[in-house]
C-alpha cells in the first residue's frame, strides 16, 4: 500500500485488472481490436470492397486465408476493416449512452421530487420496449445509416445507465461525506461531480463494458437487417447477413461470427474483471 499510495486511482485499478486472469485476457483481445482497427489499411491483405472475379465464393486458401464472399471480396480484409465499425459502435455509441445516461441519472437522483418522478416515467416508458425493437423504430424514423444506427444504440442504452446511476446517487447522497461537503458550502455541481460521481463511476464502467458487448450485437443485428452499415462498408453484421444466403460457403458467416463472438466475450471478461477489481477495492 505504501508504494501504491501516490499512484492515480485509474492506475491502481488497471494494475489490479491486469492481475485478474480473465480480465487481462479480455483486455488483450480488446487492445488487439483497437490495434487492428487503427492499422486496418496496413494489416488487411486486400481492399475490402474490391471484387476478385476470378475467386468468387472461394473457400479458405493460401491466397484468401478466410475465403471470399459472393462478390469475390476477401473475408479476412473485410473482418479487419469491420473492426472499425465495431469499435465506433462500442466506443462512441456506448460512451454517448454513458455520458447522457449518467447526467440524466445524476440529476434525477440528486434533485428528487417531481423532477425525479418525471424523468423516471420517461425512462420507464423507454425500458418498456425491447432494445432491438426500439432501435429498429429509431432507425426507421432517422433512416438506415451507420451513424443513425449508432444514435439509436446510444438512445436505447440511456435508460439503463440512468437507472443505474440514479440508484447509486440515491444511496450515496445521504452519506455523511456528502453532508460534510454540503456543510463546507460546496455547490451542487461540485458535490455531484467531485463527491458522488467518483463513487458511481466504477459500476458505470463495469456496466459500460457489458453494454459495449450488447451494443455490438445490436449493431450487427441492425446491419444484418440492412439498417446499419450500408454496403460496401464492411460490418460483421452485414457479412453475417449476406453469408446467410450461401449456406455452402460456410466461411462467409462463420468467420465474422467468430470475430463478433470473441469481442463480445472479451468485453464481458473485462466487465467481470473490472467488477471484481473494483469490488475488492471497496471492501479493502
Amino acid at each position: 500500500m505504501e508504494t501504491l499510495g501516490s499512484a492515480p486511482r485509474w492506475r491502481l485499478a488497471l494494475t489490479a485488472l491486469l492481475h485478474h486472469r480473465l480480465g487481462a485476457f479480455g483486455l488483450c483481445v480488446c487492445a488487439l481490436v483497437v490495434f487492428t482497427a487503427l492499422l486496418a489499411p496496413w494489416i488487411a491483405p486486400y481492399d475490402p470492397s474490391v471484387s476478385d472475379y476470378e475467386a468468387i465464393l472461394s473457400p479458405p486458401s493460401l491466397t484468401h486465408w478466410l475465403g471470399t464472399d459472393d462478390l469475390g471480396r476477401d473475408i479476412l480484409s473485410r473482418i479487419v476493416w469491420g473492426t472499425q465499425v465495431s469499435l465506433q459502435v462500442s466506443l462512441i455509441a456506448v460512451s454517448g449512452a454513458i455520458v447522457l445516461g449518467s447526467v440524466v441519472g445524476m440529476i434525477s437522483g440528486y434533485a428528487g421530487g417531481w423532477i425525479d418522478d418525471a424523468i423516471m416515467r420517461v425512462i420507464d416508458a423507454m425500458l418498456a420496449f425491447p432494445t432491438l425493437i426500439l432501435a429498429l423504430g429509431i432507425v426507421a424514423v432517422l433512416g438506415p445509416t451507420l451513424v443513425n444506427a449508432m444514435i439509436a444504440i446510444t438512445i436505447v442504452n440511456i435508460p439503463n445507465f440512468a437507472r443505474l446511476v440514479r440508484a447509486q446517487v440515491l444511496s450515496i447522497r445521504h452519506m455523511d461525506f456528502v453532508s460534510a461537503a454540503r456543510g463546507l458550502g460546496a455547490s451542487r455541481v461540485r458535490i455531484m461531480f467531485r463527491h458522488i460521481w467518483p463513487s458511481v463511476i466504477g459500476n458505470v464502467l463495469v456496466y459500460g463494458s457489458l453494454t459495449a458487448s450488447t451494443a455490438l450485437i445490436t449493431e450487427s443485428s441492425l446491419s444484418f437487417l440492412g439498417l446499419g452499415a450500408q454496403p460496401p462498408t464492411p460490418s460483421w453484421g452485414s457479412m453475417l447477413s449476406s453469408g446467410m444466403q450461401y449456406w455452402d460457403a460456410w466461411w462467409m458467416s462463420v468467420f465474422p461470427g467468430v470475430a463478433l463472438f470473441s469481442v463480445v466475450l472479451a468485453l464481458n471478461f473485462v466487465g467481470d474483471g473490472l467488477r471484481d477489481v473494483l469490488d475488492a477495492r471497496i471492501t479493502e
Binding site: 452519506m175 455523511d176 461525506f177 460534510a180 461537503a181 456543510g183 463527491h195 467518483p198 463513487s199
Partner: peptide, 14 residues
C-alpha cells in the same frame, strides 16, 4: 459539523 462515523464521513475516493 463533525460526524459520528469516520468511515462514512470521508469521501473514500479523495
Amino acid at each position: 459539523m463533525i460526524f459520528q462515523d469516520p468511515y462514512a464521513s470521508l469521501n473514500p475516493h479523495m
